[in-house]
Design a binder for these strands. Structure first.
Lengths: 198, 198
DNA sequence: CGACGAGGTTACCGCGCGGTAACCTCGTCG
DNA sequence: CGACGAGGTTACCGCGCGGTAACCTCGTCG
């Protein structure tokens, strides 16, 4: 039934299959049996490549975290103005999320927060993002702590907006990543300063 | 060992104990055995009050969602200006989160997102919040969709900021809820319009 | 053509899970 | 003082879990 694969290819396939399972059912809700079955092999093959379920999930998590961070930071780096960097970063974020929904759900919904070791990996990713953004904020007389807080808020906007976006547009991505990024960048940039008393 | 309790009190106690377990270990990671043990009774007592583990979690989830929504909307309603409502809402949110950390983690970290039924309860809560906020946004020529998106962004800021806040201040709440709310309200209100090119 | 090693499978282990049937205890009230 | 019902426990069920020991298969290379 299943063809034999060289070790490195099998390992890559198992990581990809595991990502999908973990995204759908979470860490605790996914069994090694089902991952193996989905990959078309038996369980001991899984244990030849990964020492334990925890180790497998940890690798999946670190993998997607790195991929997302790399894409965003590269995109942000291509812009020349702070506002362009914010917009470019959001655009890269949403584009990545659209192409890799499973990666997003594993990072932010698969129960990673419940485990100290896994939470640390996600935290590392968020901290990287926030630090980059904090460096863009140059408001007169703002304390570093306050700047960091604002940066975390921006990261939060991207995360929660992505969740709503993926939820509402099950197949077709209704607002395009670019359009969504433009709207959200405006929010992050300008806030609600347009609000007036009714 | 354990005293006998009238049904209504026992039920209330079981909900409280279950909240703590679910907050710490998630839905899938919590067993009915452990909840019963933590409550000082045996498992069949749990099943006298709740038909299944899913039913118990659903009740816990709906309970905390209602409590949080009620507090925030009441606090926001007491303010007289839009900006005051935003600030008051954030303050109520953070104050609630500080007093009920477990409630926060059950809503946003216990794996509720992985199950369609549970996700719907959390979504309902977020939608209530967002709708209230959207009504405060009266920017000239802004489409309803865009307004909703901005409102979701605000809700996201509160959620993610809370997570970081609880994480960094394990016991003492370093910035007070009031101070944190003031800072975050400023972000939501004014955004990053102070950013200048370096 | 045969040895050997990489890539696999079969078949099992003990455990804790969600859930339930049957039974016990003890305060209350005629 | 005895019946009864609310509030509880004991003891079990089948199942799927994470993980492993032992064995098989087949292309490659001397």
């Amino acid at each position: 039934m299943s063809t034999r694969l060289p070790a490195s290819q099998r390992r890559r396939q198992l990581l990809d299959v595991a990502l999908i399972s973990f995204a759908r059912d979470g860490f605790q809700g996914t069994s090694m049996n089902r991952i193996a079955e989905a990959a078309g092999v038996t369980k001991p093959v899984l244990y030849q490549h990964f020492a334990s379920k925890r180790a497998l999930f940890g690798e999946v998590l670190a993998d997607v975290g790195e991929r997302l961070a790399t894409e965003i930071l590269e995109a942000a780096g291509r812009a020349t103005t702070p506002r362009g960097q914010v917009a470019g970063g959001f655009e890269a974020y949403f584009a990545f999320v659209a192409r890799n929904r499973d990666a997003f759900f594993v990072l932010f919904g698969a129960g990673s927060a419940l485990d100290a070791e896994f939470a640390a990996i996600v935290r590392r990713f968020e901290a990287d993002m926030a630090e980059t953004i904090a460096d863009l904020i140059v408001i007169e007389g703002l304390s570093p702590d306050h700047r960091r807080l604002l940066a975390q808020g921006i990261v939060g906007i991207a995360e929660v907006t992505s969740r709503h976006w993926l939820r509402s547009t099950d197949d077709s991505l209704d607002p395009s990543p670019e359009a969504l990024a433009a709207q959200v960048a405006t929010l992050a940039w300008s806030g609600l300063r347009g609000i007036e008393a009714p």
